[in-house]
Design a protein around this nucleic acid. Structure first.
Lengths: 186, 186
DNA sequence: GTCTATACTTTGATAGAC
DNA sequence: GTCTATCAAAGTATAGAC
């Protein structure tokens, strides 16, 4: 019976490499090399590369959920939480070597709608929007869904442009989010 | 000397396939098959697949420039042009089988900064922002660059979410753009 | 008995030769 | 325009280390 520890180590290495270089650019051999594990071990934990990619996407989605939960715990004001989320997204989007949102990047790498990686990425993006709408429902906004969708648009734009245009994009996105929250709150 | 007609035919076929399935998923053989051209012909016009991808990106960028020029000619109001651009982006983003913005999708497929496809995509995205800022400079906005960047954010969010959430996203983006233009114009 | 290391097979890609 | 070289990838099997 294989140790669950190894699974985490493999998935951690895969996550790091996929995040930096993309899924297609990283072969299983490279993961095996950098992980110091045998090929058999990887294939006992993940039946195929697709399986590994799906696990990677689940981990990314869990990271987003954890971020939302953290913001919810740390920030008392419902309106402030939305802005804080944009700020946190900005930090991630402008890190050196960032490729933006991992879910969206993987979606672009697997355009076929029936591919497991594509389906899982879409599934988690739908869930991310639902999470945002939950947050927005706690504000005093007249149309919380609209507020949530606009914040999501800002985050997506940030993930798209942050890696290209840098820190200014992140600051501008936070200001944009503040203006939107203000406008929608009355 | 190769006929320029053939080059267009090859590039047209490549554009169609790359747009639908992504660059990595389309082999040169498939382009050759659907184009009814020999392998030699393709290699006389494009030295490598990378060359073909770069030409594809240039064509996408030219399409965007043409769209901006068309909106400029058709719509007299500088403010209205920005909204119209969002509307046109929405049409493209929600077409069946759309993968969003081709430049961004290709960027995700080629994450290495030194890769020609990556460099060209970034180059054209920088230019796209500059074009938007030119349009915004003609409005009465207090801070035209800020208005332009916010419209770009909305367009990017639309390209990201339109393929997933469909028509409603496009309508919401237009309304969002109208609100932003109104807010920035005073 | 679980893990490492490696050799092998198959497949599909770019690229070039004829 | 077909045919071939080369290479890298996924996946499988096998041999051996602790």
């Amino acid at each position: 019976m294989p140790t669950p520890d190894a699974r985490e180590r493999i998935l951690g290495t895969a996550t790091r490499l996929f995040d930096r270089h993309g899924v297609h650019a990283v072969g299983l051999q490279r993961i095996i090399d950098e992980c110091d594990c045998g090929k058999n071990l990887l294939y006992t934990h993940f039946a195929s590369k697709d399986d590994l990619v799906v696990a990677y996407l689940r981990r990314c989605a869990a990271g987003w959920d954890a971020l939302v939960a953290g913001v919810r715990a740390a920030s008392p004001s419902p309106e402030g939480r939305l802005v804080e989320l944009v700020r946190e997204a900005g930090v991630r989007a402008t890190e050196p070597g960032s490729r933006g949102c991992a879910l969206r990047a993987t979606l672009a790498e697997f355009p076929e709608p029936r591919h497991p990686a594509h389906r899982v990425a879409v599934e988690y993006l739908v869930r991310a929007r639902a999470r945002l709408r939950e947050l927005a429902a706690e504000t005093s906004a007249a149309d919380p869904d609209r507020l949530a969708d606009r914040i999501m648009t800002i985050i997506d734009g940030l993930y798209a442009n942050g890696p290209i245009f840098g820190d200014d994009t992140a600051k501008a996105a936070v200001a944009f989010a503040e203006d939107v929250v203000r406008a929608e709150s009355r």
